[in-house]
Design a protein around this nucleic acid. Structure first.
Lengths: 251, 251
DNA sequence: TCAAAAGTGTTCTTATTACACCCATGG
DNA sequence: CCATGGGTGTAATAAGAACACTTTTGA
């Protein structure tokens, strides 16, 4: 085992891209770094993995300390390990993302949580370390995920309107021309994963929308069989082109 | 920085699931371990990541030392880091898979390569460490990948018949009833990613099949736009059921 | 009564599926 | 001449895309 001692001088961290949805924007929770390296820059919440801690556990711990939330959607995405990515030595980081309901989030008393702030994804330009690259990778994974599994609900409050749901999908998928309202509703409702609560919004200056709830039980049933949660972008405003020769539209 | 010394006592490895396709079976290249731990068991090829080496580079190195191949399809899948997965200490491993043409593979002179052998995926039941779990994760990723990108060609010799291609897809996707020959051909050919070589097989005891080649240039073009490489299982032999209520068929 | 968003169906087009027979070769 | 796998087309069905007007509320 002596011959391997050389290799036992590295460390690894987890970094967590925590997604939320609010005011029509997809957001990510970032920490303003109080110390070097990268002091003053925004960074993903993360920390070293303890010697006796599994990777998933570490990711949950980071999330819990920051938001007080457990039992949320959390998934490993990819590991980033460029040689010089961390000034302290060889540190690779395992990237996770989680989906939380911003309405459930309350700032925790921990010092780190005091420095946390939600940022609209689209406006995040630069982050500490290689965190921008990590954010992009997680955002891409989310784009894929949302087409294959109904995880969107993880980001919405328990009761929501179809328009809110559509806006969430638009915030994630960023279709140029938006999604077609009628087709979106048809597709979503045809999945039978929504419970119509027979309630409506109150106090809005327009016709109040019906409220729905995600039917988690029915979802579990479907998971066994597998199903399609794809959503395609409306072509409405597409400039009249001489119709692409081949339209193998990978979603 | 002292406060972090505690964490710089770990190591990480890469493990590589090397897929090949031969005799109608999807195969994986495994190494028979010559030393403890897990002496005598089959394991994925892998090694510690050198202190000054990127993760991808390490994965390529492992592949190169074993097969002599470079410039092959290689992708990171997931990182496995259970606390006690390795008896030498805390070692997490970054899993990769690669797709190679078995016809290009020649056993390398290195001692490790002498112990390598191809195993049909379906027959691999137990592996050293958590390598079976890693293999399963990579196989699942491949199943997904093959539906979204035309990577199947990475596993075939430069010239192949449509039936060989179909058998490859069946080996990966494992559809219960096989794929429908006519629909498969229609779909594949409609993608315009194959060059008809205007050659045929020789020396076969039946009508010789046409040979095709993958059109890499055209693929690069398509990549810009995105496209669909999905293939669905034939329902031929499905027992006559009262037609599933909802058939959101996630591929 | 106005502004603002909710809600709702139909038609057209495209993709997917199911399905059965003749063809070319070597032995 | 036979065994083996190669090769081909069509019709029915399902899914996706385009598209515009009426309704309900608060201000």
């Amino acid at each position: 085992m002596n011959e391997f001692n050389e290799y036992f001088k590295s460390a690894f961290t987890v970094d967590n891209v925590i997604f939320g949805f609010d005011e029509g924007d997809l957001k990510v929770l970032l920490i303003k770094r109080g110390e070097d390296p990268h002091k003053g820059k925004w960074a993903l919440p993360g920390y070293f993995v303890y010697p006796n801690e599994d990777l998933d556990t570490a990711a949950k711990r980071v999330l819990d300390e920051l938001t007080g939330l457990r039992n949320v959607y959390l998934e490993q995405v990819r590991t980033f390990g460029a040689v010089n990515r961390h000034p302290f030595g060889r540190v690779i980081t395992v990237a996770y993302f989680s989906l939380i309901k911003i309405s459930d989030y309350t700032i925790q008393p921990s010092s780190i949580a005091q420095k946390a702030k939600w940022h609209a994804i689209a406006k995040v330009k630069e982050l500490a370390f290689d965190h921008k690259e990590i954010l992009d990778a997680c955002f891409n994974r989310l784009k894929w995920l949302v087409r294959s599994r109904p995880v969107g609900f993880e980001l919405l409050p328990p009761k929501f309107t179809l328009t809110e749901l559509q806006h969430l999908y638009e915030a994630i998928l960023e279709p140029e021309a938006g999604l077609d309202k009628r087709n979106f509703r048809k597709k979503i409702l045809s999945m039978n994963l929504l419970i119509d609560l027979d309630e409506t919004q109150e106090g809005v200056a327009h016709r109040p929308a019906r409220l729905y709830q995600f039917d988690k039980d029915k979802y579990e049933e479907f998971l066994a069989e597998g199903f399609n949660f794809e959503l395609k972008e409306s072509k409405k405003k597409e400039k009249p082109e001489h119709r692409k020769k081949a339209r193998h539209s990978f979603p």
